[in-house]
Simulated scan of single mutants.
Amino acid sequence: MLSLELFLVVLAGFGAGTVNAIVGSGTLISFPTLVLLGYPPLLANVSNNLGLVPGSLAGAVGYRRELKGQGTRLRWLVPASLVGGSVGALGLLVLPAAAFDAIVPVLVALSLVLVVVQPRLRERLAGRLVEDRDGRPSTGLIVGVALAGCYGGYFGAAQGILLIALLGSLLTDDLQRLNGTKNVLATVVNAVAAVVFLFGADIDWTAVGLIAVGSTAGGFVGGRYGRLLPPTVLRAFIVVVGVAALIRLLAP
């Protein structure tokens, strides 16, 4: 890699770590950057996933105050994310690379739509909140988190938005506390997928290391200062990068 490319990958990792801690969908910054630099989509996805694990953990640590009192909830939802992430990651390895090349533009496009409609989605779901029963999430939420984990283990972009939509629709709690929950669940999915990839996927360790450095710093920044950043600016940036990636992916 040229020095400029190295810097761009670290910067993309920083942006992804920051955005993941705040709203999710940071993969739409780091994954497209790798694709635009010439990485094959499957290699870019796997290397990006591994690189984002430290950043996801940093974001979860940044929201540790919001996680107080959520032990029972997490004891039910973390296993769901663990199972879902494992299934999604295994699916990525079992399906041929050509299938991923065909599916990923659709996933990127759907993720971009989710980024754009996120504010309105939250508004529509705000009136449908359901309390936990004795601290145990509903069965529907547990299943939904597992399905979101499948998606996250396979690709990951906008996984956080899916999770926050599910949590916001089926739990009665402060949005920042739910964001902390989202960060933990996304970390679990990314980590279990990373373990699966270590045993069965091609990995570019230079990209992994660069994204890890950037995403870790971004995760701490997002966890600490994310509440001060305008979500509209973040969404606009994500959409611009994502559209550029779509053009690159669909180019003959």
Rank of each mutant, 00 (worst) to 15 (best):
A102H: 03
V104T: 13
V104G: 00
V106T: 03
V106L: 05
V108W: 01
A109C: 08
L110I: 08
S111H: 00
V115A: 02
V115I: 15
V117D: 07
Q118G: 05
R120I: 02
L121G: 02
R122E: 13
E123R: 09
L125A: 13
A126I: 00
G127E: 02
E131G: 13
D134C: 04
R136Y: 04
R136C: 10
S138C: 11
T139M: 10
T139Y: 06
T139F: 09
V145Q: 04
G152W: 05
G152S: 05
G153K: 04
Y154D: 05
F155R: 01
F155L: 10
A157P: 12
A157N: 13
L162H: 06
L162S: 10
L163V: 14
L166S: 09
L167E: 11
G168P: 14
D173S: 15
D174T: 15
Q176C: 11
N179P: 15
G180D: 14
G180S: 14
T181K: 06
T181C: 14
N183Q: 11
V184W: 05
V184L: 07
V188N: 01
V189G: 03
V192C: 06
A193S: 12
A194K: 03
V195M: 05
V196R: 04
L198M: 08
D204F: 04
D204M: 04
W205L: 14
